[in-house]
Design a protein around this nucleic acid. Structure first.
Lengths: 245, 245
DNA sequence: GCTTTTAAAATGTCAGACATTTAAATGTAA
DNA sequence: TTACATTTAAATGTCTGACATTTTAAAAGC
């Protein structure tokens, strides 16, 4: 692990990159302890604060964890699914909110990915998944529910659908797509009528999965996509109109 | 923006979380300048090194960028697609390599997602996408190609397929799925026969996209998935056998 | 009016110190 | 001998203060 002496970028960034590469390449393995901050600062010929900044960068990506005390230090972290989900969601949410991604594009991506899970979910969903979906459908039918709570329940419903595919890699990939849509969905005001329609489509999806009917699930998702798109476009149109005033 | 005084976790982590929340919630908008390190250390009542560690954490997630000099400082960064791709790939690669994800599971996820792109790609692929795919097919037919180069070309081919869907959110999501598989694919030794078969399937896919035939593209992807799975299983079986010796 | 110089503000880096946490090693008593 | 309390050492966490470097805006000079 070496750094380029005549590089103009931050030393802490270079050091972080060197250690990151070592981890990715497998030179440092999971749970292996890195040298102490003092040792690293000697190795790289920089001060301890600089080393610390590098380590914090890696910690922010969940590549390492640190432990205080004797025999503590920085350890290569086994990236867990929940940590990976979290990063995926943060990145996706920011990407969407900062790049003026249109509702249509986000919606298309989300449902394309969800439809990819549907056939697997139809095969493998457990009673647990179905129960979660039914429970969320019930919650979504409650009259007093706020729009934000309705959207949160929607996310839970769709995550159960995705998790039903019983493929953790898929669940991880989809976490971003589903959660990142929530801020966009939150902009929609759900009328009693639109909620009723969505709940109906959710029921169709759940019924299809219960019957292990992949085609029916796909068809229901297509309908849900086109209805969601319709709702989103109404909101956008109203917004443009309000802006034109 | 406040931090909990009687929280036992790192101050720098708390501060980073507070600023991150402000960015995600929209309280800090893109290109807005954060207070200087000195001002932040006053605000949070901590020292400058602690603030710096927090800022480095955010920089590692591409949430901020820093500029030196007068009127420099830390600015909220617009997360670009390439930056998001990069993080997605790093996270996905580590997730797969550190969690002993089986070849089967990774393969299933990857092809499920790719098949989700295929219908859109069949509609929208440009001559450019098709040209890229043909070029990679040609490269894959060269006899002297190393296994690693073959895999790299494979990744380029599949990225062109995904990009053909003309949905940047999908491309971003798929980047991780496709690239993260490469280390697993690199373990496979591609015989002349298997390369020939893969090239044939790639041609079928490209032909289908050119003809805008979504069903044919899907069918070819299904075949490619099952063949890839077959190759992967052979490798795993050989490995187990070698291990048993 | 244009160019050059200067000053100021900010991040980047360093050195050294102290505080806190943690687990192993040691000592002590039942 | 075993169980428990104490000590100790090693590490991270934090602070202070200083200096280096970069960059821009304003001042000075022509």
């Amino acid at each position: 692990m070496k750094i380029d002496p005549d590089n103009k970028t931050d030393l802490s960034a270079q050091i972080a990159a060197a250690i990151r590469d070592a981890i990715i390449s497998g030179a440092l393995i999971v749970d292996e302890r890195l040298p102490s901050e003092a040792e690293l600062s000697e190795q790289f010929n920089v001060s301890r604060p600089t080393v610390r900044e590098a380590l914090k960068r890696l910690a922010a990506q969940s590549l390492i964890r640190t432990q205080r005390g004797a025999f503590g230090g920085a350890f290569v972290n086994r990236l867990s699914y929940p940590e990976a989900y979290g990063q995926q969601i943060t990145t996706s949410t920011l990407l969407l909110s900062m790049n003026s991604v249109s509702f249509d594009v986000a919606c298309e991506a989300r449902y394309a990915l969800e439809r990819a899970c549907a056939p697997l979910s139809a095969q493998r969903r457990t009673p647990d998944h179905l129960a979660t979906m039914r429970a969320e459908i019930h919650r979504q039918s409650q009259p007093g529910l706020s729009d934000v709570a309705f959207c949160a329940s929607d996310v839970t419903f769709h995550r159960a659908l995705v998790d039903g595919a019983d493929n953790p890699v898929l669940s991880y990939q989809l976490a971003g797509a589903v959660e990142a849509m929530q801020p966009l969905m939150n902009m929609i005001t759900f009328t009693a009528r639109s909620r009723e329609k969505i709940v109906g489509l959710h029921s169709r999806i759940t019924d299809a999965l219960e019957a292990q009917d992949a085609d029916a699930a796909d068809a229901a998702l297509v309908d849900l996509e086109s209805y969601t798109l319709h709702l989103g476009r109404d909101v956008m149109a109203a917004r443009v109109k309000a802006h034109a005033k």
